[in-house]
Each structure stands twice: as C-alpha cells, then as structure tokens.
C-alpha cells in the first residue's frame, strides 16, 4: 500500500493522509472546510472494521492486510451525487447536437463517452432522449460508453436498479413507465434500455481512456475538485479522445476557459466545447 509520493499534502495527521490518498488515487481534493465530510463518510467503515479512530484506520491501511479497504475508503469519500435528467435543458441540447452530428456523418455510428457517470442516471437519461429522437432500434443508434472510477457505482449503474427516491429525482413519470419495470419497491431498467450502454470502471487519472475517439464526451461535475494542474492534464487527455468535429460537455458551473488551450467554446452548439484548431493535442499533454 503506497501512501507516500504525495508532496503537496504535508500534514501527518490521519485526516491529511486520507485526503492525500484520495487525491493521489482520484484527483479529488477535499477543501479544508469540507474535511468533516471525511469523518462522516468513513464512520460506517470504521464501525464495520471495529476501528475507533481515523488514526487506527490509517494504521490498518498501511498494514495493507485488507486488500479492498483502500478502495472502499476512497469510494466512500467520492461525491457521487447525480440524478436523472440533471440539468434537463442541457441534456436536451446534447441529444439535439447528437442528432445534428448524425446527419453529418452518414451511416457511421456516433460514439459517446460519459466520463464520471456515477450510478448511471446520466447515461440512461441520455439514452432515453436519443431513443425518443432516433428510435432505439435504429441501426446507427450511437454507441454509449460510460465510465467511473468507483467499482461500486459502476456495478449499480450496470444493474440499473433504482430506489423510489432515486427514480423520482428528475425522471418524468411517462418515461419511467416506458423504460422501467417495478421490482418490489425498486425500479429496474428494461433490457432494451440497459443494452444501449456499456459500463466500465476507469480512472480519469492514470487509466487508459476507452479506446478510439468519440464524437461527444460528457464529463459533468467530475473535475471541479481537481487541482488546476491535474484538471489541465485531464482536459488534455479528453482532447485526445475527441474526434475533430466532436464535442465536450462539462457540468453547468464548469468551463475550459483559462484552463486549457486545446478546447474552445463551440460556435454551433452553445455551452459545449470543441477542439481548438491547429493544436496538436499530443504535443501539449505533459504526462
């Protein structure tokens, strides 16, 4: 178990070690005024492993006897807040842009990547919007790849089963009965929806991106807690994964402006970004 290698965070306190581990593994920084989140988020893990304090947890992590402990700890600290049709107007714009792009590429299937998809609400919402526009049986229905660093989130996304509470957040009732089946108290995506998305566990920091280039990349509400330097690096990798005419979509409060020269606001699609011309992404990416 490697906890060192992280010169930025000098604190030797347990809190500092855990925050450093989170940042090292995921890029996510925890602001000092939000460090109470660590304690709240880790309480159930402490209880489960019969540990009294964060110091004991750090000791257990360093002993490295429980292989999954570090991953469990990191997972618990990630902000995985999401909902169906989050920023609904933006999702509509994305779906419209996909339809417009499809018309320009002829018979080729478009490729969409949802990076940081959490428990799946975002890619499922997009797949529903695209099905309504293109028909889910369309031979050129876009390929949708959805990734997240959290194995637990990806597994839930793949299962497609949501509590009543989760599904009511943003899911219009007509779409719910069209695309979900009731399973006891929960709601299960129908197979025709589930099959439209490939879910994979992948870390934006360190793992290879999904192979090939994409026409549209969504990376919404993922990079906001990254350090500026790391965010730059991720933008660089995302730029390498975008096709020449492709689009990048960030969360409602996020921008590339002032963060990278590789991407610029799209002229055609408001609120989305496209590759800046005459820049060779690879030469700008520092590993």
């Amino acid at each position: 178990m490697m906890l060192g290698n992280q010169p930025q965070v000098a604190s030797t306190s347990a809190m500092g070690v855990i925050a450093a581990m989170l940042e090292q593994r995921t890029g996510q920084q925890i602001a000092a005024n939000r460090s109470w989140r660590i304690e709240t988020a880790l309480k159930p893990i402490l209880r489960k492993h019969r540990l009294e304090t964060l110091d004991e947890l750090v000791a257990a992590l360093m002993a490295g006897q429980n292989g999954n402990l570090a991953e469990t700890v990191v997972d618990a600290m990630l902000n995985q807040e999401t909902s169906f049709f989050r920023d609904a107007a933006v999702l509509d714009q994305i779906a419209d842009a996909v339809v417009a792009l499809q018309q320009t590429v002829g018979g080729r299937r478009l490729r969409i990547w949802c990076a940081g998809c959490s428990t799946g609400q975002e890619p499922y919402s997009l797949a529903i919007l695209l099905s309504e526009r293109l028909g889910d049986a369309s031979p050129t229905f876009p390929e949708i790849v959805a990734t997240d660093i959290s194995a637990a989130a990806i597994s839930r996304a793949r299962n497609g089963r949501y509590s009543q509470f989760e599904i009511q957040r943003g899911m219009p009732i007509r779409r719910m009965i069209r695309w979900f089946d009731a399973e006891g108290e929960e709601w299960q995506t129908k197979a025709e929806l589930t099959r439209l998305i490939q879910f994979r566990k992948a870390n934006l920091v360190g793992d290879q991106p999904p192979p090939g280039r994409f026409d549209v990349i969504l990376c919404r509400n993922v990079l906001m807690y990254f350090s500026a330097a790391l965010r730059r690096r991720v933008f660089c990798q995302l730029a390498e994964s975008i096709r020449p005419e492709g689009l990048l979509v960030l969360g409602a409060g996020e921008t590339v402006i002032g963060q990278t020269e590789l991407l610029k606001p799209s002229q055609q699609f408001r609120g989305m970004y496209t590759l800046a011309p005459a820049k060779d992404a690879a030469s700008h990416c520092v590993a």
Binding site: S83, F165, Q168, R169, G170, P172, I173
Partner: peptide, 19 residues
C-alpha cells in the same frame, strides 16, 4: 401530468414541479 410516490422530500417535489 405527473406522479409523486409518497413519501417524498423537497427535492423530489421540486423536480416534479419543474417537469
């Protein structure tokens, strides 16, 4: 027009009213 399953909270109601 819409359907809220009880119990609900503020966010749920707000999201349904938005819809």
């Amino acid at each position: 027009d819409e359907y809220v399953m009880k119990p609900f909270d503020r966010e749920t109601l707000e999201s349904k009213l938005q819809i």
